[in-house]
């Protein structure tokens, strides 16, 4: 029944999806945290930049963001990032695009987390003479992160599935292989589709369960 899978590197394709997701997740966590910090900072210019960035990028379709990194940055402006073969460059461009996009959602989740920390704590820390950076990194963010593990799990799951759009800029991940198989295996299209849907469930379901459990463990008891 599953002999149509012969000759395709299914695991290899899903491995690219996993790598794409992990690199983009790490990148967007960092960039998203910086954006959230800027959004609550006392410097108006930073607040304006961060607000504008988040609202522009999160409202732009991801396909356009990725095509911009490939057609705009790479082909027109000649940006090569870390270089390597063109497959490597495409992969890096996809990570860049996914990071730029997903960071906005990380930022907004984190900002909601910051709002769960009582204002009195920040005021108390300020009164003790801590600087803004110290208040943010020592008092507010550690509690904010604990509050947003579950929403961040949501973002991570969305990112896993969004990574399929990288097929549009020549990254050979799972959905690119699916397109190839749909072209060749016309008599088992539904099965091909089911196999790939199942593959994504295998990737995302454990992530959701694990992080759901973590979010309960680390929640701040107030």
């Amino acid at each position: 029944m599953f002999d149509f899978l012969d000759g395709y590197d299914l695991l290899g394709a899903f491995w690219v999806t996993v790598k794409l997701t992990l690199y983009s997740a790490a990148g967007s966590l960092i960039w998203g945290t910086i954006l959230a910090g800027m959004r609550v900072s006392p410097v108006p210019v930073m607040r304006v930049f961060s607000t504008a960035y988040v609202n522009v990028v999160r409202n732009t379709p991801l396909t356009i963001v990725l095509l911009f990194t490939s057609l705009g940055l790479n082909q027109t402006m000649g940006v090569k990032l870390f270089g390597g073969s063109s497959d490597d460059v495409n992969f890096q461009l996809a990570v860049l695009g996914l990071t730029l996009y997903t960071a906005t959602f990380v930022c907004e989740s984190l900002r909601a987390g910051i709002n769960t920390v009582p204002v009195g704590q920040a005021e108390a820390a300020r009164a003790l003479g801590l600087s803004f950076t110290q208040v943010l990194t020592l008092v507010v963010l550690p509690q904010a992160f604990r509050a947003v593990v579950a929403p961040l799990a949501n973002v991570l799951i969305a990112l896993t599935k969004n990574s399929t759009i990288a097929a549009a800029i020549s990254v050979a991940e799972a959905s690119a292989l699916m397109k190839t198989m749909m072209e060749n295996e016309t008599d088992s299209i539904t099965l091909v589709f089911a196999v790939f849907a199942f593959g994504f469930i295998v990737l995302t379901l454990p992530v959701g369960l694990l992080l759901g459990w973590v979010s309960k463990r680390v929640a701040v008891k107030r």
Partner: peptide, 24 residues
């Protein structure tokens, strides 16, 4: 185009060493 027969022909037959980009 990603996954198309033409793209597969290039990879498997005509020019396996060519740098093939597959776009949407």
């Amino acid at each position: 185009v990603t996954g198309s027969t033409s793209a597969q022909n290039v990879k498997n037959d005509f020019a396996p060493k060519a740098d093939l980009q597959e776009f949407g």
